[in-house]
Amino acid sequence: MRIYTQQTQAREWLQQYRGRLPVFACILGFTATGLIPGISAAGATPEDRQYTAIADAEFLVNGPLPQPKYPLPPLVVGASPVLISRAVVEACDLPIYLFNAGLPQPPAVPAIDLGGIPANCLTSGNALPLDIVQQLFAQGWQWGKTLATRVAGGYLIISECVVGGTTTALSLLTGLGIAAAGKVNSSHPNCNHAQKWEIVRVGFQRAGWEMGKES
């Protein structure tokens, strides 16, 4: 395994966990931001992207099936990252915990419902009601503690599948006052930084917030 950064910390981590198996958690969500044309490559069309997280969850658990309920969406370029995740999960026989943080419809495989709802587009300036945000945060904190007790000396892998998630992350980082413009990647081979930043800017404007602080 090659280490690219934080050499000392990485070596210590590898020494501690080498040979130990993790628990794999995947949080599934949806935001209408993912339906904006061109915002994401995780589905060829906005219609396809409505089902990306649900299809990924089914493939992650079941692997390739002749007739899945939700087939993986067609992509303009590349292949779905869930192909790699499924290969690792299957080869290492990892336990999987799926969490539904707010999907338009439940996945075809068992998932823990966190009581979330699909998020509005970031450009609305009101992606989620504050009480839902607080509930999801509390649920995440509690489930983090719970899963930490189930790793049996191993470690926890936390993953996510949210189309439009990196644009959401850019918005969150900006709201926290972190200068993240041009630094958050996307599913496109060449990142659409300008489009992502414009979406964040419009959302902040409609919410009545300045970049990084409430107005």
Rank of each mutant, 00 (worst) to 15 (best):
D113S: 01
P22L: 01
P74A: 06
A111P: 06
I112D: 01
V109Q: 05
L122R: 07
A127I: 10
T5I: 12
C191N: 14
T45C: 02
P95E: 06
I117N: 02
D113H: 02
V162Q: 07
G102Y: 02
A194R: 13
I39M: 07
I54P: 13
G63R: 10
P68N: 03
E198Q: 15
S124C: 06
P46T: 10
Q205W: 11
K69G: 13
A79Q: 15
E214F: 13
W209H: 13
Q195H: 12
C191W: 14
G63N: 05
A91Q: 14
G78Q: 05
S124M: 09
N62S: 10
Q50R: 15
Y97F: 13
T167A: 11
A108Q: 04
G144D: 02
A55K: 12
E90F: 10
T166E: 03
K69E: 15
S159V: 05
R86A: 09
A180C: 05
Q105N: 13
E214L: 14
I54T: 14
Y4D: 10
A25D: 01
A180F: 05
L14S: 11
A152F: 10
P64C: 03
S187Q: 07
V23Q: 12
V151H: 08
R206G: 07
D113N: 07
G43V: 11
W13I: 14
A41H: 11
L14H: 15
S85D: 15
V61G: 07
L65P: 01
P129V: 00
R2V: 14
D131M: 07
V109A: 04
G19Y: 08
G19Q: 04
E210Q: 15
P95F: 09
L35R: 08
P104W: 06
A119P: 04
G115L: 01
T146K: 12
L130H: 10
E47K: 10
L72M: 05
A169P: 03
P118M: 09
P46C: 04
L98D: 00
P189R: 07
G63L: 04
T149L: 12
H193C: 10
P73D: 06
D93R: 15
P81G: 04
Q205V: 08
D48P: 04
L103F: 06
G140D: 04
V82H: 03
A57E: 09
K196G: 08
T52N: 07
Q195N: 05
T33H: 12
A53G: 02
C92F: 15
W197C: 05
V200G: 01
T33A: 12
I96F: 01
D48I: 08
L114R: 00
A181T: 13
A180H: 08
V88G: 00
E160Q: 13
E12A: 14
C191V: 14
M1H: 12
F137T: 12
T149Y: 08
Q15L: 11
A41K: 02
G19K: 09
R18Q: 14
A55I: 02
L173I: 07
